[in-house]
Computed example of a mutant assay.
Amino acid sequence: MLQQHEFEWVLNKEVHTVLNQLKNILVECIKRFPVPLNLSGEGHYKPEKFVLSNGLDQIKCVVSLTGDSITHAEINFKVQRQQMINYRTSVQPDNPWRLHQVQDAVNHLHQAIVIIDNIDVDYPFRSSEEVLFCLGNILGCLQRGRSSLILPRKRTIDDLMKSRNMKSLSPVLPEDLALSFYIQSHKLVFAVYQLSSTHGTMKYECHQSEASVPWLNEVLVLFTVALQLCQQLKDKISVFAQYKDFVVGPLPPLHCNV
């Protein structure tokens, strides 16, 4: 009987308390992103300047990061052909280089907030399965959002060379070279790919440089805190889920879809 009372308290009180805490963390996390949160795309953000260098005098890239776009970049790098050749190119404000990972992470965060907002503060949860369903949806959003920043999508050399972003470079580069900017954890990474043929076999060399982006570190910390809080509640509810007779009245339809 004591366990049944504890179960009802968790469903009626603790779940809503944790969901409220979770939403506050997610709101703080989304505020760290210097990108517009509405569909109009409005918002004025001060460019952040970063110098990316590999310390070998092979790559130097000075970047202005504005929100989820590189709005300006002065790029210098060297590649070995018959001799070492230096290339210079740039990204100009009228044709920025988009970092889709940033907007993807924001979208997943926003989706998690919408799920929580769709649960009324006085909604009477009736079963552990119902709560686990909601928490599973929220966890999925948070995991996808965090992964979009930590695990950049792998792309082939051919995809990189044909990407729209490569067309934003001025002047354009030879066809056997490709550049890439991407987010990996709390860092902005710049990579140079050189395609070559040896005895009929195509291969590529990659050189990269990076710079730490402070607000990305804050975002990842808040993502981690939110994931831990959500997982802890899920683990607690999963214990009650082992007892199939722990329900509170008739089961209503689930209301946790986005």
Rank of each mutant, 00 (worst) to 15 (best):
V192C: 01
L222D: 13
V213H: 03
S212P: 02
L220C: 07
V219W: 01
V192L: 09
L188M: 07
Y204M: 14
V221Q: 10
L220P: 02
L220W: 04
H199M: 06
H207K: 07
F190V: 09
W215S: 10
A211C: 06
H207D: 11
F223E: 14
L216W: 08
S197Y: 07
S212E: 15
V221K: 05
Q208G: 13
F190G: 05
L220H: 04
E210C: 06
E210F: 10
S196K: 13
Y193C: 06
P214Y: 03
F190Y: 02
S197R: 02
C206G: 01
W215R: 10
L195M: 13
F223D: 14
W215G: 13
E218L: 13
H199F: 07
A191G: 05
M202K: 03
S209I: 00
T198Y: 08
E205P: 00
S196E: 15
P214S: 04
L195S: 13
S209Q: 02
F190K: 02
L216G: 01
S196D: 14
V219A: 12
K203M: 15
A191K: 02
L188V: 11
N217T: 08
S197N: 08
H207N: 09
E218Q: 15
F190R: 02
V219D: 08
H199K: 05
L216H: 08
T201F: 11
A211Q: 05
V221M: 10
K203L: 09
E218M: 11
N217V: 03
N217I: 03
L188W: 04
V189W: 07
V189R: 04
S212V: 15
S197M: 09
K203D: 13
L222R: 06
S197H: 04
A191H: 01
Q208C: 12
L220G: 05
T201P: 01
V213T: 12
W215Q: 11
E205A: 09
L216Q: 07
E205I: 00
S196T: 14
L220V: 09
P214V: 10
S212R: 07
A211S: 03
W215P: 00
V221W: 05
F223H: 12
S212T: 15
S212G: 08
T198W: 03
Y204I: 12
A191D: 00
F223A: 14
L195P: 02
Y193L: 11
N217G: 14
G200M: 06
W215Y: 15
S197W: 04
M202N: 05
H199N: 06
S196L: 14
S197L: 10
F190D: 01
F223Y: 15
G200D: 07
K203G: 01
F190T: 07
Q208M: 13
V192K: 01
Y204P: 06
T198K: 03
E210T: 09
E218S: 15
C206P: 00
Q208H: 13
E205R: 03
M202V: 11
V221D: 12
Y193V: 10
V213N: 09
A191T: 06
C206V: 12
W215L: 13
T201D: 09
T198N: 04
N217F: 05
E218P: 03
E210R: 03
P214R: 02
F223R: 07
K203W: 05
